[in-house]
Design a protein around this nucleic acid. Structure first.
Lengths: 238, 238
DNA sequence: GTACTTTCTTAGGATAATCTAACATAATTT
DNA sequence: AAATTATGTTAGATTATCCTAAGAAAGTAC
């Protein structure tokens, strides 16, 4: 909602920079830590844009006094630029941490989600998010609730699995006829299933249960709650 | 990170629409529920843009088959448009719910944050977020941890308060000289403070404690953790 | 030290959004 | 029914991105 705001608050952030400019800054900062010098080419690669786009962005950042850079030269952050980059980066880590350790999605996806969301989060939300992550991560507050939370967060509906995933059935919410049919097919709590394949439009999905291949419609698969089994990736090639 | 993606995945979402187009769709859907007819003017007002911008957007949405609309006529969503709007809206509510009931920021701010973030969240994250909110909201899993969580989430550092806010001191993390000085000024656990005013650049902030006005630097105020006291707004005019 | 390769910049064009100003249609009032 | 007001559209400009193509500078190789 509020498109104009999207321009004022969404694209342009606390730093006064657009989301894209913040990305450039963040990238420069990251590269500066890894490499001796920061080059246009590297920035372009990291941000997945072409070099001319980088050149233009650098010129703008230079005008803003956030980097020092001469034509054909290397790029360095000024103190001011470094400060903003740090802030942007901390927001990013906070989010990535949240996605990974609270929402419990894979590290890679957590990072990618953080990238997409990071420029749009207010400092306040960021602080609150940090409090939440700290609470969940803190070992003081251990106890059953945390196991409960993680169990809940790790549950999926059968149709959320990817091809090849295996999982154990936790619960079946189907009623009446459907429930009966699913039970007959062998779906019951504790049973292991493997998602074989989705049909082109994702609709019927093929599942393996007790050595049988069964075809389910998405609406049917939605009633089945499962807990994925971690694949031992290192065993994959044996 | 990944600017090009920002275009492919950030601005253009699961629906294949840009964030702004999703906003238009969502707004139309909301207005359609409240009003007899949806007019350009209302959309413009809601989205905080001028009418010509709306006209242009509507033309595009029409081309995409998401709304039916004739020049100078009213706007209606097609089935396809309605479907997308619903999806967008459910993502929005999920986020707003999260910001309000898990991160525990005010309803208004929760909604505004949701608006800014909503277009950038994958369906997967959305589902996980929903699981988290459900877990926190569910009354089954009651018990002390929830109180602990809320207590933690409701804590603020003194310098996070707004002018006029009152709060009770929960903890002081200062060390050595600073701690001594704060204690001398009357800052201690259980004491009530009121944030009077920030200096122009937010730096020294003026706090009232035990009828005294005290000036603190931000770094000092950061060491003081407080629990805001809800103002009884309805009493304000008496 | 000339020639090739890599890296970077400039120029010019595209797109998606915004806006203002001016004009067109519809609705309301008299 | 004519005049006025409200609403909506078109035209044209602006901004922030991106891109490709072509040329310039720097680095490397023989």
């Amino acid at each position: 909602m509020k498109l104009k705001d999207a321009r004022e608050d969404g694209f342009f952030n606390n730093s006064g920079l657009s989301a894209h400019m913040e990305d450039y800054l963040e990238t420069i900062s990251m590269l500066a830590q890894k490499k001796r010098v920061v080059r246009v080419k590297d920035i372009a690669k990291k941000l997945n844009v072409k070099m001319p786009s980088v050149t233009v962005a650098l010129q703008k950042l230079k005008e803003l006094g956030l980097i020092s850079y001469e034509k054909y030269g290397f790029v360095e952050l000024t103190d001011e630029g470094e400060k903003i980059a740090k802030r942007v980066y901390s927001r990013h880590s906070c989010l990535a941490d949240f996605f990974e350790n609270v929402l419990r999605i894979s590290k890679v996806e957590a990072d990618s989600e953080a990238c997409k969301v990071e420029h749009h989060l207010s400092p306040q939300s960021c602080r609150q998010l940090k409090r939440l992550v700290d609470f969940v991560n803190s070992s003081e507050t251990d106890g059953k609730w945390k196991d409960d939370l993680f169990a809940k967060m790790d549950e999926r509906q059968l149709c959320e699995l990817k091809e090849g995933d295996r999982a154990v059935i936790v619960r079946i919410d189907a009623q009446g006829e459907l429930k009966k049919r699913l039970l007959e097919l062998g779906f019951k709590k504790g049973e292991q299933v493997e998602l074989i394949r989705y049909a082109p439009l994702e609709d019927p999905l093929q599942v393996k249960i007790k050595r049988y291949n069964v075809s389910l419609r998405i609406d049917e698969a939605k009633t089945i709650t499962v807990m994925p089994v971690k694949k031992l990736e290192s065993n994959a090639n044996r």
